[in-house]
Design a protein around this nucleic acid. Structure first.
Length: 569
RNA sequence: GGGCGUAUGAUGUAGUUUGGAUAUCAUAUCGGCCUUCUAAGCCGAUUACCGGGGUUCAAAUCCCCGUACGCCCGCCA
């Protein structure tokens, strides 16, 4: 609770000086209390014991007599506990709070190869990335969400070759016996066109030199910036990408800008970069003329040679990524990338090279993969859960719950609520887990609508909306009244909104704020139980004002993590 | 073989960056609460820091040695 810290620190500093404590190391010891009933902030006095040669409990007691302010003080077992006075807390929480962000942030996320539909694993990137985008915006930062389109190289090359050379019948017969397109997704180009890619990959297993050469030629041309080949690639991948973006859009995810990888080849920045790299101290060359940097000289362990240029003079993916980063740095103060954990080494190499060039390095949020109970997700082995199917299932499950709980609702209303509940639940179940934790996808958990879930938060919010609707007008400003425990508890939770948001944004940890919303909703639920707004037809203005403030916070918090704030569900 | 990451109740998770009190929350299980603003809710009960050393007044947190799992170690993307 930073608002409390701000008023405690100055007087605590004076008190500690009087007692004889030197230095300000205590500032980091002053932290949130472990238990809620201990207080809001606590100071362990053990570190002072040695310096002063006294018992920590005595020091705590003496300090408590030297302090006073808008907080209550208690001591317990060598700790000094501070609790904000409820009235003061209320006066701090109720006014609109200023958001501290001032930076221009560019967040690159998703950037999936445009060759097929999102499965749940690939979508983790988009969900985490978009949540970071939303949280940074709520924090006050200027944010640009960017998708880096991989429009050259082998993956797109294979897709383009297949579309140019295979008929639908050929594709169908090649893929015979494999799962077909779910009829629900007929006409959705990512689901349809991925079959050309899959068919081509199957054919390539035979290693037919004619096909390999044809694909190789395309890839080679794209990597040298051949306009007509790049155009052919674009015609192949764009519909697929559009289909993929449709899925993301259903999840509430969109982008401000799309930047094509080929841009840096065509504009010549990649070749200029390679010239610069060739002049570096740690530069080296292989027998066939390929170039690398020896990052081992800068402390990289394991494989130390980082190749950035092939023997034939063309660039590699990482080389283009470096050019891309240099370009990105020209347009923001802060750069964040969202990458799967398989990109850790690559990202390290890119960062080290950027440093070698005197450039700043990006912040990277890595996330671990989502597995299935049967093992790793793999499109080829048919061991996947497509995001489209998950969303469809979530919507259907939600619809059956809504129909049961709200039998009076019409079909349109049910569908609208079910869609919001389904999408929010799917997003939230991915967002609430720490990114570096790999987890196993289970339908049951992904579709959980109770406990630690989006619908739990949505439900609290609709309760607040329902009250507001019943009152039918806004709250009266500066209402005051009695603060019972449940309201006090809610106010304390509300007081940490910005703290939690700051932490989430600064550390690139969306899950901490996502979990905070659960606390906020829980506190609201207790308040809802104990502090009725409408009693016998009469509005308790103070309770209403607090309810409204909580409703606003829930609402903006939900938008921040991609939960759709319904007014009724 | 080397590098990086993860390990917390029956299950899933927070907390580890910056050491601090009785370790968070949920699911499951058992029991209670709808004549009062939506019971997708509320209240109560039950169960945990991978193993072994070390540092410290104090270790889930820091250091060392193991074990298990994941990812990476392409002139692929």
């Amino acid at each position: 609770m930073e608002i409390l810290r701000a008023i405690i620190e100055p007087s605590l500093e004076t008190a500690l000086e009087k007692v004889g404590v030197k230095g300000d190391f205590w500032k980091k010891a002053l932290g949130p209390s472990r238990e809620r009933d201990q207080g809001d902030l606590s100071l362990p006095c053990f570190p002072f014991a040695k310096q002063l040669g006294r018992n920590p409990a005595d020091i705590a007691t003496e300090l408590s007599t030297l302090l006073s302010g808008d907080y209550d003080i208690s001591t317990a077992g060598g700790y000094l506990n501070f609790s904000a006075k409820p009235d003061w807390l209320c006066s701090k929480v109720m006014p609109a709070s200023e958001m501290p962000g001032t930076k221009n942030v560019l967040i690159e996320h998703t950037s999936a190869n445009p060759n097929g539909p999102f499965h749940v694993g690939r979508a983790r990137n988009a969900i985490l990335g978009d949540t970071l985008v939303r949280l940074n915006r709520m924090y006050g930062n200027e944010v640009r969400a960017e998708y880096y389109v991989d429009d050259m190289g082998k993956q797109v090359g294979v897709l383009a070759w297949a579309i140019a050379n295979l008929s639908k019948d050929q594709v169908d017969s090649l893929l015979e016996g494999k799962d077909g397109v779910n009829p629900r997704w007929n006409g959705k180009p990512d689901h349809e066109m991925v079959r050309w890619y899959q068919a081509a990959q199957l054919m390539r297993e035979d290693k037919d030199p004619v096909i390999e050469e044809a694909i190789g030629k395309l890839v080679h041309a794209s990597e040298h910036g051949d306009d007509s080949v790049l155009k052919q690639f674009e015609d192949a991948y764009q519909p697929v990408l559009d289909g993929m973006l449709e899925t993301l859009s259903r999840l509430g995810i969109d982008f401000d800008t799309f930047t094509k990888e080929s841009k840096f080849v065509v504009e010549g920045t990649v070749s200029k970069l390679m010239e610069r790299l060739a002049g570096l101290e740690i530069h080296g060359m292989a027998d066939n003329g390929a170039h690398f940097l020896d990052l081992g000289q800068r402390g990289l362990k394991g494989k130390t040679e980082f190749f950035y240029r092939r023997g034939d003079g063309s660039s590699l993916y990482a080389t283009r990524d470096i050019a891309y980063h240099m370009w990105k740095w020209q347009q923001c103060d802060e750069l964040i990338n969202v990458l799967g954990e398989d990109h850790k080494l690559q990202a390290k190499q890119v960062s080290m090279t950027l440093q070698e060039l005197g450039e700043k390095v990006p912040e990277v949020m890595f996330y671990a993969f989502i597995k299935l109970p049967e093992g790793k997700m793999s499109t080829r082995r048919g061991n996947v859960v497509f995001m489209d199917d998950l969303l469809e299932e979530a919507q259907a499950q939600a619809a059956s719950v809504v129909k049961e709980l709200r039998p009076e609702l019409g079909m349109d209303e049910v569908t609208k609520i079910a869609e919001a509940v389904g999408v929010s639940a799917v997003r939230y179940n991915i967002t609430k887990v720490s990114p570096d934790k790999g987890f196993t996808f289970r339908w049951e958990e992904a579709l959980s609508f109770e406990g630690e879930s989006a619908p739990f938060i949505m439900y609290s919010h609709t309760r607040a909306c329902s009250i507001a609707k019943r009152v039918g007008r806004g709250p009266i400003a500066d209402s005051k009244g009695e603060i019972p425990p449940a309201m006090h508890d809610l106010l304390r939770t509300m007081a940490c909104f910005v703290d939690k948001l700051s932490h989430s944004v600064k550390e690139n940890k969306p899950h901490t704020f996502a979990l905070y919303l659960l606390e906020l909703a829980t506190s609201y639920n207790s308040f809802y139980r104990d502090c009725h707004v409408v009693k016998d037809g009469v509005v308790d203005e103070f309770n209403f004002a607090v309810s409204e403030k909580a409703r606003e916070m829930l609402c903006s918090g939900m938008i921040g993590v991609g939960i759709i704030p319904l007014e009724s569900m």
